[in-house]
């Protein structure tokens, strides 16, 4: 929800942002552990990108539409998607909105205006442009956001979407969660220029922001939201953070990088937030400990409950290919089941 921060609500808004970051971090660590224990199949943690995602979420309304990528759990949590919904997708259980069809980290959350996540990177960007076109045509004052990693900026879809959004002057925010790495490729080998500078080539505003700082990211996003809502067109935000974990649970980053950011170090976005909120007098060590403790309990409890939900029944795999099954699918279902 757009958080118009003022003197009265600043403490609540900021503490809520911090709580979402902690919950996301706790969640990610739990899921990575559960994957190692063989309790889930795969995961792409957001560790290191919590401030970027929460800062973005703070600037958005419920009606704004998000075409997200597969590393946006803090964004979902702050936007109010229940932990259960996220767990159901990761577990691919019978309660999952996509009926267990997609591998973990590929969420759909229609109620929260989260579109459905794809694997092929940046293919969500042209969709965001089309959605923005349609919403403007329908006279809705809605902003559309596409999130993606730094690797996505090399794709034809990125170029197509940036150009189209600028040509049609659409209310789109392209938020690059620049975590420094596209699996094994560092950003400096992905592109010769700063990602924010690419915006100029399309006639679009580009902003580079410290994605480790949720307040700075929020402010940059608010600027883009205001531009979009007032009909002034799209914005590219390059939010710089660091992928503190592996690309996914199937990846071993020690093979290609020696650089790391330790949890709790001064480059950890959660540490940055703690220092900010302590100096503002909104948090102290005991409050921080309480928030972390509650997050751990919540994640553990909910994981154990959702884990008991069974897999979808086999016949569901033949549903939703079309509005109605054609004869081919009916025949194959009869043959297989």
């Amino acid at each position: 929800m757009t958080e118009m921060v003022n003197e009265q609500n600043e403490k609540d808004v900021f503490v809520r942002a911090y709580t979402a970051m902690v919950l996301s971090r706790t969640f990610d660590k739990k899921i990575v552990m559960a994957q190692r224990q063989g309790r889930i199949g795969f995961y792409t943690p957001s560790i290191g990108q919590e401030a970027t995602q929460v800062g973005l979420s703070m600037a958005l309304d419920h009606d704004d539409v998000i075409f997200q990528y597969y590393r946006d759990v803090a964004l979902m949590i702050h936007r109010g998607v229940p932990i259960e919904v996220i767990l159901d997708q990761i577990m691919g259980n019978a309660e999952d909105e996509s009926k267990g069809r997609q591998m973990p980290s590929h969420y759909t959350a229609k109620k929260y205006n989260f579109m459905s996540v794809q694997s092929p990177v940046a293919t969500n960007l042209p969709l965001a442009v089309g959605a923005a076109y349609a919403l403007r045509y329908q006279k809705k004052n809605t902003v559309v956001v596409a999130t993606f990693g730094d690797g996505s900026t090399s794709t034809p879809d990125f170029h197509a979407a940036m150009n189209l959004a600028a040509v049609f002057n659409l209310p789109v925010i392209f938020l690059c969660e620049n975590n420094g790495w596209a699996i094994s490729l560092p950003t400096e080998k992905q592109t010769k220029v700063e990602i924010s500078e690419k915006a100029a080539a399309y006639g679009m505003k580009g902003i580079k922001v410290d994605g480790n700082n949720f307040i700075e990211t929020y402010k940059a996003t608010m600027e883009a939201v205001e531009r979009a809502r007032s009909g002034k067109g799209p914005t590219l935000i390059d939010a710089i953070s660091f992928r503190m974990g592996a690309h996914s649970t199937s990846d071993d980053p020690s093979k290609y990088r020696s650089q790391t950011v330790e949890e709790g170090s001064e480059k950890d976005p959660i540490t940055v937030a703690e220092e900010q909120l302590k100096s503002l007098g909104y948090l102290n060590d005991s409050l921080i400990a309480k928030i972390k403790e509650e997050s751990t309990k919540m994640v553990n409890d909910k994981f154990d409950i959702q884990e008991k939900i069974p897999a979808p029944v086999p016949s569901t795999m033949f549903d939703d290919v079309y509005a109605e099954k054609n004869w081919i699918i009916k025949e194959e279902e009869d043959d297989i089941l």
Partner: peptide
Amino acid sequence: ELGIVGMSVGMSLMGV
């Protein structure tokens, strides 16, 4: 072409 199809998908998702 990819933009034409991608935009069409996005439009259709919003009820156009």
